[in-house]
């Protein structure tokens, strides 16, 4: 079965394992997802499965989106989010339902999300620069980035040099998280550790690449 789901981050808590050790858990409301399209090498040049998640009112979608979900023999509920998951062996057909049961406790997964936006952040926060000294006659050097390169030669800052700028709101993947909880009834998935993004954020759960 295809190992991939779209979900919503709910939040974190901790539970105890059988030894009584507290383990941090992030809860994800994962699925149910529907296979909305299958990408094939012949037609699209690559293999992937397009999943849809989040039932909504028909009026929240455009006509084009509704038409994509109701074409030919395919008749799916109005789904708010569509995401593609690359797959080597495709064993699902368009219209299939994918639930949290594709994952089992003990498995490793990767979770892709969008990190919390931090706005325009300085080099200390964004790249972990040390900043300047606080004392010894310093003024306004505490969180300064320091030098960004040499002097007259080259006479400019090289591209890609680290500095202040927009931080967060990026696509981030948390790799190799252990599945600690699967609740098919409530579509809940619990993974050990933190995942990117704020509560309520959309996440994609995939089989771990480096397990």
């Amino acid at each position: 079965m295809l190992k991939g789901l779209i979900g919503k981050k709910i939040g974190m808590t901790q539970i105890f394992d059988e030894d009584g050790v507290a383990i941090p858990v992030t809860l994800i409301e994962a699925g149910p997802c529907y296979v909305t399209q299958v990408r094939t090498p012949e037609k699209d040049g690559y293999q992937a499965v397009q999943l849809g998640f989040g039932e909504t009112k028909p009026k929240r979608l455009t006509g084009g989106q509704l038409g994509h979900l109701k074409r030919g023999s395919l008749s799916l509920p109005p789904l708010r989010y569509l995401r593609e998951i690359r797959a080597k062996n495709i064993d699902v057909a368009e219209g299939d339902k994918v639930t949290v049961e594709v994952f089992s406790v003990g498995e490793r997964v990767d979770v892709v999300g969008t990190s919390k936006g931090k706005g325009f952040a300085g080099a200390v926060k964004r790249h972990g620069f040390r900043g300047g000294p606080k004392t010894h006659g310093q003024s306004d050097r505490l969180r300064a980035p320091g030098s960004r390169g040499a002097g007259t030669t080259p006479g400019r800052v090289y591209k890609g040099s680290r500095g202040a700028g927009h931080m967060g709101n990026d696509r981030v993947t948390a790799q190799n998280l252990k599945v600690v909880l699967v609740d098919a009834e409530r579509n809940l998935l619990g993974v050990r550790g933190a995942i990117p993004g704020a509560r309520g954020g959309l996440v994609v759960i995939k089989e771990a690449r480096k397990a």
């Binding site: 939040g11 539970i15 105890f16 809860l27 409301e29 409530r186």
Partner: peptide, 12 residues
Amino acid sequence: MMSDLIKSIEPA
């Protein structure tokens, strides 16, 4: 605010 779902899996 804590979600009811989180409360439901927390240890007793």
